[in-house]
Structure formats: structure tokens, C-alpha cells
């Protein structure tokens, strides 16, 4: 008896037209409206506006279609290739060179266990992640100035004072260092939680087999870190076209600009400051297309390999 009613109910549901279903959910759709409106007004219109890359910008009257003119111009500009090189170099350093440090940090933190000392290190090391790049630049500029902590350390090693913030050869190491300063603690969380997820039985079994600290780390902890490590690496590669706009805007100055000018800073300067709207939009669209493709590709690779994607 109950079964039949359930069946008819199911049938009725199937017979409902899409329109009827939508009507049943009208309040739900209404709750979705603000989010949709936000994106349509602020994002979709801006994305459609990027067609300007194919047009000449006119202050009065309609823009004229020029096809690939601005892309050709872009690819013929030597400065653009320098900027591409900078972007890829800086983001690659962040993705690959800095990659092992949070892993090591998590391993070390795990060794001290849940002690007061371990907690202290965690609380301190997560903190810079919540500070804006403006604040961090302020702190770092001070640390590199005369009497600052970095200058003092260099003095201890017998080096003479030099303002490294305006040194072309030092600026990329400074970007790398400040990125590490900001995120070593925070980025280690994902690994630490993977380590904490290892079951106690596994440790006990290793102990029975006579494994010491090193062997436990090698055969139990590192394998547990493999999945998050692969995920982080692949997904970070997806963001290779973004080298860190806020950081670079705040660490940049005239002396080092040619070394750390990236696509985002270039688009802002050429577009909004120098008002070459179409040209800058072309650069931005180029970045957007490659960047989106990279995010999508790395998402699907990661999903396939590790089961975790970018969203």
C-alpha cells in the first residue's frame, strides 16, 4: 500500500513540468538573486567589456573594430616579453622553490607535538598571513633600513650596509623571502592536518616493527603527505599567470621596476595610468585566457590524480 503511494508520488513528480518545478522553488530562486545580480552587474558586464581589446577606444562615438591589431602590437612589444618573463619567473620561484618549506615546517612542528612551545610557534607563524602586503612592506622596508634587523644581521656577517630594496639583484630574493615570511606557517596547515589524520594504529604498528623516528617519518608520515603535496603543487601551477599584484605594488620602486614588472602591474599602469585602454585590455585578455585554461587544466589533473580539485 505504502509502496504504491510512493510510486504515484514519484510519477507525479516526473510529470511536473520544469516550469512547475521552478515555480515551487520561487522563494529559493529569490534568495539566489542578490548573488546572481552582483555577478551580472559587476563581473559579467566587465568581462563583456573586455571585447575592447578588439576595438579602438573612442571617447565620443562608437569604438571601431580593429580585429587583432592590439594583440599584434602586444606581441611585437619587447617590453611585453620581458613582463611575461618576470611573471613566469616570480611565480615559478614561489610555486617550486618555496614548495618544500611548509612541508618541512609541518614535519618539525609535528615532532614537538602538542606542547606549549608547538602552540606558540603555530600561533606566531600563522599571523603574517592575515596582514596585508602594505603592512608587510612597511615592516620589511623598516627591517632593511639602517639599524633594521636585516641590516644588523648582515653587519654581524661583516657585510656593509646597502639599501637592498632598490637593488636590482636583490629584489627577487626579497620578494621570495617576504612571501616565505608571510606564508610558511599558514601553508603548513594543510600538511599538519594530514599528519594529524594518520591513525594511531599505524604508528603503533611501526613501533612494534622497531621503526625509529626517522623510519616512521619516511615510511608513515611522508606517504601520508604525498597526496596533499601533489594537490598543492598542481593547483598552484594553475595560478602561474598571477605573480602577486599586491606584493609587487608594495615592494616596487623605480630602480627595480624593470625586474619585477608583471602582467597585472603592467595592465594597471599602461591601462589606467597611461589610458591606453585597448592595448592594456588585450594584455589582460591574453593573461585571462591562459590563466583560466591553466586553472581548468590543473583542476582536472589534480581531481583525477588526488581526488581534490581547486573547488
Amino acid at each position: 500500500m505504502g509502496k504504491t503511494t510512493a510510486k504515484t508520488a514519484a510519477k507525479k513528480k516526473c510529470q511536473m513540468t520544469t516550469w512547475q518545478k521552478v515555480k515551487r522553488y520561487k522563494w529559493i530562486y529569490l534568495m539566489l538573486m542578490p548573488a546572481l545580480l552582483y555577478f551580472v552587474i559587476f563581473r559579467v558586464t566587465a568581462i563583456i567589456g573586455m571585447k575592447l581589446a578588439f576595438y579602438d577606444y573612442k571617447i565620443v562615438g562608437d569604438n571601431t573594430f580593429v580585429g587583432m591589431k592590439y594583440f599584434k602590437m602586444l606581441f611585437d612589444t619587447p617590453a611585453f616579453w620581458n613582463i611575461m618573463k618576470n611573471t613566469l619567473l616570480i611565480s615559478s620561484i614561489k610555486i617550486f622553490l618555496l614548495f618544500p618549506f611548509p612541508v618541512m615546517f609541518a614535519l618539525l612542528l609535528n615532532e614537538v607535538g602538542r606542547t606549549k612551545f608547538g602552540k606558540f610557534v603555530q600561533v606566531v607563524s600563522y599571523m603574517p598571513h592575515f596582514l596585508s602586503w602594505v603592512i608587510i612592506a612597511g615592516i620589511w622596508i623598516d627591517a632593511f633600513s639602517q639599524g633594521g634587523i636585516v641590516t644588523e644581521i648582515m653587519k654581524a656577517f661583516g657585510m656593509e650596509y646597502k639599501n637592498l630594496m632598490v637593488s636590482k639583484s636583490a629584489i627577487i630574493p626579497i620578494l621570495t623571502g617576504s612571501e616565505m615570511w608571510r606564508s610558511i606557517g599558514w601553508d603548513s596547515i594543510i600538511y599538519l592536518s594530514a599528519i594529524l589524520g594518520i591513525s594511531k594504529e599505524l604508528y603503533d604498528a611501526a613501533a612494534i616493527d622497531g621503526a625509529g623516528r626517522w623510519k616512521t617519518a619516511k615510511h608513515i608520515i611522508l606517504p601520508a603527505l604525498a597526496v596533499p603535496m601533489v594537490t598543492v603543487l598542481i593547483l598552484n601551477v594553475g595560478f602561474i599567470m598571477s605573480a602577486g599584484l599586491d606584493q609587487i605594488l608594495n615592494f616596487s620602486n623605480d630602480a627595480v621596476l624593470s625586474r619585477i614588472d608583471i602582467i597585472d602591474t603592467y595592465v594597471y599602469r599602461i591601462g589606467l595610468v597611461n589610458t591606453q585602454y585597448s592595448f592594456a585590455t588585450a594584455a589582460s585578455l591574453f593573461k585571462g585566457i591562459i590563466g583560466t585554461a591553466m586553472v581548468l587544466i590543473t583542476h582536472f589533473i589534480s581531481k583525477k590524480l588526488t581526488g581534490t580539485g581547486a573547488w
Binding site: 563581473r43 558586464t45 595592465v267 589606467l272 589582460s284 590563466g291
Partner: peptide, 13 residues
């Protein structure tokens, strides 16, 4: 989420 518009068009909007 993944396709970010250019700052120029955002400014225009």
C-alpha cells in the same frame, strides 16, 4: 570565480 575581468573594465563598470 576563475575568469577575472581586467581592472580597466572593472573601473569602467
Amino acid at each position: 570565480m576563475i575568469f577575472e575581468p581586467s581592472i580597466i573594465q572593472e573601473y569602467f563598470v
